[in-house]
């Protein structure tokens, strides 16, 4: 079953671009990464799904129902953590969480205590007195309190220290095991790499790739780094599939390669080498590749 289904979703602000013709689906039980640089349209997409923004055209469906028409009903099962958390400053954490819980017909007092303890959150403090990281914890507890079936996270880790980030990810994995679907938006790729099954890459409001993390990392790209004896001669590598060409002063060259591995190895074999490394590129590099190549193509 599709939990999220975007169909040609478009939002323009006057003449300015928001998102354009965005379509993808997220299946039940997935942890789905949603990647792009700042201003790519990630938040716009998420806010449309939550009914905060009205799309210019196209539609967004959650649990098979239109986000706008069935908004209140759908939001019962959604937990949302915004990228920047803002709450009513003069309230205590406890009161804020109780207020939040009062919107759902569930008794979540026990869960509130348990979550607060896991995240080391002091319930008796005033929101006003909390640091950014602690506010983020309030957001996490608030978003997970009602045991949502769909968890939407918009750049969730900013402000959290590594230990808390770790606990937060464990929490997410537990929720996922219990059946929750997770949409995880981020521009920090390593965290997506760790958690997600599939990832959508978005740039300037358009979907530029939709791949399984395993495919993205394993099959598709290899990172080559080689040190040549006679300086760096690029000519043998002027073939399709080579990108991210970089030369270092010490004669080292590195590049990403997508394609038949035998082709590239034959070319490498014809050279006199001092050293050779073949690595799995991290998502960052793949992502930069998407970014740069489309830029270069004048898109």
């Amino acid at each position: 079953m599709n939990v999220i289904e975007l169909n040609g979703l478009t939002k323009t602000y006057g003449g300015a671009r928001g998102i354009a013709d965005l379509s993808f689906t997220v299946e039940q039980g997935e942890i789905f990464g949603f990647i792009g640089p700042n201003g790519a349209g990630k938040s716009t997409t998420i806010r449309t799904m939550l009914g905060l923004i009205h799309p210019t055209s196209g539609s967004a469906k959650i649990f098979g129902k239109d986000c706008l028409r069935y908004g209140p009903e759908l939001r019962r099962e959604i937990g949302y953590l915004p990228s920047e958390v803002f709450y009513y400053d003069n309230m205590k954490v406890k009161d804020l969480l109780n207020y939040s819980a009062s919107f759902y017909n569930k008794d979540s007092r026990k869960r509130m205590l348990a979550l607060a303890e896991r995240m080391e959150l002091d319930l008796n403090k005033k929101i006003d007195d909390l640091s950014l990281g602690n506010k983020k914890k309030v957001g996490i507890v608030q978003g997970l309190l009602h045991e949502p079936k769909l968890i939407i996270l918009d750049e969730p880790t900013s402000g959290l220290d590594p230990l808390m980030q770790q606990r937060f990810f464990e929490l997410l994995e537990e929720e996922n095991k219990k059946g929750a679907t997770i949409l995880f938006s981020s521009h920090i790729l390593s965290e997506v790499q760790r958690l997600c099954d599939r990832v959508a890459i978005i740039k300037e409001g358009r979907l530029i790739a939709l791949e399984k993390i395993s495919d993205l990392k394993g099959r598709t790209y290899k990172k080559f780094k080689l040190q040549m004896k006679a300086g760096s001669d690029a000519t043998p590598f002027a073939i399709p599939g080579v990108t991210e060409w970089k030369t270092a002063p010490n004669g080292e060259v590195s590049f990403l390669y997508q394609g038949d591995i035998n082709d590239i190895l034959r070319r490498i074999a014809s050279l006199e080498l001092l050293n050779l490394w073949v690595e799995e590129p991290d998502l960052e590099e793949i992502f930069m590749h998407y970014y740069v190549s489309r830029e270069g193509a004048g898109v």
């Binding site: 939550l50 009914g51 905060l52 209140p72 009903e73 759908l74 939001r75 019962r76 959604i78 949302y80 915004p82 958390v85 803002f86 709450y87 939040s100 919107f103 759902y104 608030q142």
Partner: peptide, 8 residues
Amino acid sequence: DFLLTKPV
């Protein structure tokens, strides 16, 4: 982002 993402 808090209030309007509640089921109301």
